[in-house]
Amino acid sequence: MEGAGTSYSNAFRFVAPLQEHLLQGSILDAHCEVLLHRLRGLCDNADTTPETFSDYEAVYQLKNNLATPASQYILLRVRQALDHPEAPHHIRYLGQAEVGDKSRHTLVRACFDVACSSNVRDFLNELGFKLDHEYVARGYFFHKGRMKVMVSKIYRMQQPGKTDQNTLEPITQSHMVELSVVAPMGQDSIGEEMKNFAEQLKPLVVLEKFDHKRLP
């Protein structure tokens, strides 16, 4: 059992040496409209109305016997589009976000995405994964080149598994703003591009590499 977790994450690294470069921030709901307007001007899909999404995400965890607290659990995130029931479900593994030094402008974490069938949650349960938490994210999606911008509101679900509007409760008075790029390992130049883009959203939103170790 010892080392099972490492080989697990190593396997991910081996299979898909993809990395997600990430900048995070938030905007108060009252000013969200202004941000959307600006994003429409900056991004590629300017001619269409902003693409909306409404996703349900369930995070499953499997206990790991490793001693290091950082890898105590393996988390897998299952996403499903509530507004497109016919779309495949999506399962995602995310590694520990690395802050790096000053020369790096973004967070970088290993990232592994797979599309899967709708019974993936049962499958995970059978494997021994347990549902850790779940939420609904609703918002807008933009892209500029390979950069992806998501402006989304995060809702807590008051009843397990229920995604009706009246059982959802927003957790803050802000929208979350994420700027991300998934790229093969070693493409550090993307950070510069992202930094320049984030610069254009100031002072409306301050997108920064948010150190996840600072989290409570």
């Binding site: 995070q24 957790i171 989290l215």
Partner: peptide, 21 residues
């Protein structure tokens, strides 16, 4: 137009499930 506390809460919620569990 933005609050640091909200950013922290949102990031904590999305990455660690804080206040969502």
């Amino acid at each position: 137009t933005s609050q640091q506390q909200d950013t922290t809460n949102l990031v904590a919620a999305v990455t660690k499930g804080l206040r969502l569990r």
